Computed example of a mutant assay.
Amino acid sequence: MPSSSEAVPSPEDLAVVEGGLVASWSRQVRWTGGDAHRVGGLFVALSGVPDQTQQVAVIEGALDDPDAALAAAEVLFGRRRWQPAVDVVAGAHPELEDALRGRGYRVAVRRPAMVLREGDPVTTEAPSTEVRRAAPADRRAVVVAQCEAFGVSRRLAEQMVPPDAFDDPGVEVLVALGHRSRVVGSVTVHVDGPIAGIVGAGVMRRHRRQGAGTALTLGALESAVRRGAHGVWLQATADGEGVYRRCGFRPVGTCEVWLGPTPR
Score class of each variant (00 low, 15 high):
Glu130Ser: 09
Val122Pro: 06
Ala126Thr: 11
Ser153His: 07
Val142Leu: 02
Gly151Ser: 09
Arg154Val: 10
Ala135Met: 09
Ala141Pro: 00
Thr124Gly: 02
Ala141Asn: 02
Ala126Tyr: 11
Val144Asp: 14
Ala141Tyr: 01
Ala137Asn: 06
Val122Cys: 12
Glu125His: 10
Gln146Ile: 13
Ala126Asp: 06
Ala135Gly: 10
Pro121Glu: 14
Glu148Met: 10
Glu130Ile: 05
Leu156Phe: 09
Ala113Pro: 05
Thr123Arg: 11
Asp120Val: 11
Pro127Asn: 11
Ser153Lys: 07
Ala141Leu: 02
Ser128Gly: 09
Asp138Arg: 00
Val142Lys: 00
Val122Gly: 07
Thr124Leu: 09
Val142Trp: 00
Pro127Met: 05
Thr123Gly: 08
Val144Glu: 15
Ala113Lys: 04
Pro136Met: 08
Met114Asp: 03
Thr129Lys: 04
Gly119Val: 10
Gly151Val: 08
Leu156His: 07
Thr129Asp: 03
Val131Asn: 00
Arg117Asn: 06
Glu118Asn: 08
Phe150Gln: 04
Glu118Gln: 13
Glu118Ala: 14
Val144Phe: 07
Thr129Ser: 06
Pro121Gly: 10
Thr124Asp: 04
Val115Gly: 08
Thr124Phe: 01
Gly119Glu: 11
Thr124Ser: 14
Val144Arg: 15
Glu118Asp: 14
Val143Arg: 00
Thr123Met: 09
Pro127Val: 10
Glu130Cys: 05
Asp138Tyr: 02
Gln146Arg: 15
Pro121Trp: 10
Arg132Ser: 00
Ala141Val: 01
Val152Cys: 11
Val143Ile: 15
Thr123Asn: 03
Cys147Met: 15
Ser153Gly: 15
Gln146Tyr: 12
Arg139His: 04
Arg140Lys: 13
Arg140Glu: 14
Phe150Cys: 04
Glu148Pro: 07
Leu156Gln: 12
Arg132Leu: 01
Ser153Cys: 05
Pro127Gln: 09
Thr129His: 01
Pro127Lys: 10
Arg133Phe: 01
Thr129Leu: 08
Arg154Met: 07
Ala126His: 12
Ala149Tyr: 02
Val152Asp: 02
Arg140Ile: 09
Leu116Asp: 02
Leu156Trp: 02
Val152Met: 14
Leu156Arg: 14
Glu118Ile: 10
Glu118Tyr: 07
Ser153Ile: 05
Leu156Tyr: 12
Arg154Phe: 10
Leu156Ser: 07
Ala137His: 06
Arg139Lys: 05
Ala149Trp: 06
Arg132Thr: 02
Thr124Gln: 08
Ala134Lys: 00
Ala135Phe: 00
Arg154Glu: 15
